[in-house]
Design a protein around this nucleic acid. Structure first.
Lengths: 130, 130
DNA sequence: CTTGTTTATGCATTGACGGGTATATACGTG
DNA sequence: CACGTATATACCCGTCAATGCATAAACAAG
């Protein structure tokens, strides 16, 4: 289980990560919420832990698992070269939206998936001083 | 081969995507550049094509493969909820860089080796359960 | 110490994926 | 038509990861 990408290829693991994104949880909580057998949860948590995605703190018999902040940055970094491929598409789309929709969403046509234009996280120095 | 994440879990496929990120290539080009046997290339291209990552145009016997712009947005979208987890780390880092490097409009290289301060969780020993 | 709870681990099984080899298909050229 | 090139596909096989089941290990409480 080498690469970061193989780790997140597993749907259950992504579910666990998504759950831990909001708040740290115990194994039993994850087991209940995701409706998966406990050994499965523990095994996936082991993979995630050894890959550095999560860390656990001990609370009596419980283990509280929490997300490690920097774990997914590698994927984000790998994605970077490809961003400019769709950025111009998005720019055009956003420009279009800005022009034709000054008040409220609700566009006729032109929707495909529920992925709203998720901006880069507030990127200071957006694009100036080239 | 269902999910987007399983597609990019394969190193060879990521290599092909990386190659196509710069410019579209024929199968033979990919074969030569990545030093992998031709059936392997074709099979991976098939997976990528059926998943919507690449598209091919016919040029005589050649097939020119090119990257589809929107294919990787799903990953980017999935990554979004986790960004705020490391964004504050990055903010601190960038603030530090801004202080230590004044007068330069753009950071050269930006981040390359992300070793943010390890967040040591407080060893709290909660009991009082049940 | 015994019991109940919570989590981890050690099996065996299964199924999917990637690699390799050979071959088929399509196209251009002589 | 025959031939070489370029790409796709079919088949077999080894490997590895995910699952289910059973059980161990750690801990609290009575």
């Amino acid at each position: 289980m080498a690469s970061v990408f193989e780790i997140i290829a597993e749907p259950n693991r992504r579910a666990i990560l998504g759950l831990l994104a909001s708040s740290h949880q115990s194994v039993g909580e994850i087991e209940r919420r995701l409706r998966m057998p406990q050994p499965t949860v523990s095994k996936h948590l082991r993979v995630l832990r050894e890959a550095g995605f999560v860390e656990s703190t001990v609370d009596a018999q419980r283990r509280l698992y929490s997300l490690r902040a920097d774990s997914l940055q590698e994927i984000d970094a790998w994605l970077a070269p490809f961003r400019r491929l769709w950025s111009k598409h998005l720019d055009a789309l956003e420009r279009h939206l800005d022009l034709s929709d000054p008040g409220h969403p609700g566009h006729p046509g032109a929707r495909r998936d529920p992925s709203p234009p998720s901006h880069q996280p507030s990127r200071r120095k957006t694009r100036r001083t080239k």
